[in-house]
Simulated assay, not measured.
Amino acid sequence: MPVLQREPFIYPDALLSEPAELPTAEWWVLHTRSRVEKSIARKLLSRNVSFFLPWDARPLPSRQGKSCSYAPLFPGYVFLYGDVYARQIALETNQIASCLKVVDQNRLWSDLTQVYRILQNGESLRPENRLQPGQLVEIVAGPLEGLRGKWLRQGTKGRFFVEVDMLQQGVSIEIDEWMIDIAR
């Protein structure tokens, strides 16, 4: 089975790096049927509908050298940003199990922006399900300076967690303790 090339995981590119300016647009969480997240993203991209589908690159054994698979960080979910028309386009794919209304638009945008910054930085990350309570911290040094999340110590190392609160899931990266401070 051939490994597909990396596809766009965000459209437009500035969706999470600049404040949105569409007055009737809002975030929707598309709960998808099993293993169709990429297919939905392709269809949304072909219709110029704004979406975010964060990937996790996973190395695959290969005789031809290094190759990797790109799997969704949050299996079963695609984040859509748009108006009623954009939502209708997504529903027409017949691959959506349910469309979840986002009550706190700013909170979801903030959560997704933090996940996006970590992905852009190229950090090695891992998905986290049902996150545990931890100390609220802020990164005070390095390329991820300003991100707020939770700090958990695991053995001799620590991990910085960024949550997508609505899904009760998130991502974590290993980070040196000197780079964080207690959030105020």
Score class of each variant (00 low, 15 high):
Ser124Gln: 13
Arg35Gln: 14
Pro75Cys: 12
Arg126Cys: 01
Val36Ala: 05
Tyr81Lys: 12
Asn48Gly: 01
Gly65Leu: 09
Asp111Pro: 08
Glu26Gly: 07
Val102Asn: 07
Leu4Ser: 05
Thr24Glu: 11
Leu125Phe: 06
Arg35Asn: 13
Arg47Met: 05
Asp83Thr: 13
Phe51Trp: 03
Asp104Thr: 00
Arg47Tyr: 03
Ser50Thr: 02
Pro59Val: 05
Tyr85Leu: 10
Val84Met: 10
Gln95His: 12
Gly82Tyr: 13
Ile10Gln: 05
Leu100Gly: 00
Arg6Lys: 14
Leu100Arg: 08
Arg63His: 08
Glu21Phe: 01
Glu21Asn: 14
Asp56Met: 09
Arg126Gly: 01
Arg6Trp: 00
Leu15Arg: 14
Ala86Arg: 12
Phe9Asn: 08
Ile40Asp: 07
Gln105His: 07
Leu45Glu: 07
Arg42Tyr: 01
Val103Gln: 15
Ala41Gln: 06
Asp111Ser: 07
Arg63Asp: 02
Pro61Ile: 04
Trp55Thr: 00
Pro61Phe: 11
Ser34Ala: 12
Glu128Ser: 11
Arg117Val: 04
Asp13Lys: 03
Ser17Asn: 14
Arg47Gln: 14
Ser69His: 05
Pro75Ile: 08
Ala20Asn: 12
Val115Lys: 08
Ile96Phe: 06
Ile118Cys: 10
Asn106Lys: 14
Arg47Glu: 13
Asp104Lys: 13
Ser46Gly: 05
Ala25Val: 09
Gln95Glu: 12
Arg87Ser: 08
Tyr11Arg: 11
Ala57Gly: 05
Asp56Phe: 08
Leu112Phe: 05
Phe51Val: 02
Gln114Ser: 15
Asp13Gln: 11
Asp104Gly: 02
Ser67His: 07
Ala71Val: 14
Val84Pro: 01
Ser17Gly: 15
Trp28Pro: 01
Asn106Ser: 13
Ser98Cys: 03
Ser69Ile: 06
Leu16Ala: 07
Ser39Met: 08
Cys99Thr: 14
Gln5Lys: 12
Arg33Ala: 10
Glu123Tyr: 11
Ser46Trp: 02
Tyr11His: 14
Val49Asn: 05
Leu53Pro: 03
Arg35Lys: 15
Ala90Gly: 10
Val103Ile: 09
Leu112Trp: 08
Val3Gly: 01
Ile89Asp: 04
Val84Gln: 14
Val103Trp: 11
Ser124Asn: 10
Leu119Trp: 04
Val84Glu: 15
Thr113Tyr: 09
Asn48Ile: 01
